[in-house]
Amino acid sequence: MEIDPFIFRLSIFILSIFVGYYVVWSVTPSLHTPLMSVTNAISSVIIVGAIIAALANNDTDIFNSSSLYGYFAILLAAINIFGGFLVTQRMLAMYKKKKRKDK
């Protein structure tokens, strides 16, 4: 009997939870705020669904209701992607080590 592809996706899902569990425990507590902003940015990979939804129709009917939801989702996810990664970058740039010649 053939295995349902759903089972494979479920395996990916469960294993990723474990990967996430161990990776996140190794994150240093001082970087928990950047962790939240970067997880926020990467969860906006949901934009792939939004793009598929937006481009599902042909030229004659660009803005029908389903693709319109797609376009709005692109807008929201794009705010998150750019905002999330850039603010993370900005924060991480501030974490500096002690300068040895600090007078």
Binding site: R9, L35, V45
Partner: peptide
């Protein structure tokens, strides 16, 4: 992750699981 299952997209499933467990740990 829920949407990832719907769209059968592994990037979304992986990310969803990562973010989900990250938030839970925090």
């Amino acid at each position: 992750a829920g949407i990832g299952f719907t769209l059968e997209n592994s990037a979304l499933i992986i990310t969803g699981a990562l973010v989900g467990s990250s938030g839970a740990i925090l």
